[in-house]
Design a protein around this nucleic acid. Sequence first.
DNA 1: GTCCAGGCTTTCC
DNA 2: GGAAAGCCTGGA
Length: 295
Amino acid sequence: MDYNIVEKENSLILKNMEDFEPKHIFECGQAFRWHIEEDGSYTAIHRGKVVNVKRKGEDIVFLNTTRKDFENIWFDYFDLGRNYSKIKKTLSKDPILKEAIKFGKGIRILNQEPFETTISFIISANNQIPRIKKSIDLISKGFGEYIGKFREQEYYSFPTASVLAKADEEDLKEKYKVGFRAKYIVESSKIINEGRVDLNKLYELPSDEAQEILMTLPGVGPKVSSCILLFAFQKTDSFPVDVWVKRVMEYFYFKKDTKLKDISDFAYEKFGPLAGYAQQYLFYYARELGIGKNK
DNA sequence: GTCCAGGCTTTCC
DNA sequence: GGAAAGCCTGGA
């Protein structure tokens, strides 16, 4: 995408950023490692760096970073090489997506780290967002490395597979609040650490083959693997169906109770390689409006 | 092979 | 008391 970047003392400013809304990006459920500040800005952590982003009029302001880190890390993380106006234009041909996009027009799909994303979405199963965030923060603090402070808040990296492979299940369960998912976390970390599943290989594979491999990990089923594919591997044809997406799809498209597999098949037929983006707009829309909750 | 019920930790509403 | 970004197991 084309954008104008301006450097000031300790900040970078991206001028006229229409397709970038920090609230939409961080609160559309794709990421858990962010902190909302009192001024409404968001502080995120990725690849050992901490950045703060905020909308200011037509611009987006990045704090606590450098031009070099922006180019090497944040450009990719925020998916700035992609033209979201074009994606939204295509999806808006569908009247329901058109409405959904109005609510989440500043959504971008982040490119997150594979291992962290895998464990995070194992934790997400049958769980609630505040608690998911809490567990991930505790795990980072307990097993990760100290990175630095920003506005009195300390930030830690997410641990590696070799570290989590040695974690104690009872500890994870009780002190880190992951409950029954503890054994999935340790077992999956072991499998990845020993190279029985090579996450880096998944970038090159088509979505269905990559999904099959991910689903050999304990705690990883259809929904969790779809999230990992979409949020870490840029498999944008992946369409995770959670309770919210199920509700919103049934409410608008099917008008009846529908099986998860039928919903994701339908979405792939309808949206093809843009299915993943469609899912994010629909998810945000459904949650913001509480669609289908009282039926 | 597919489908489905029940169980799972704990928090939040 | 029920639901929560579901998965696993066992049985039909």
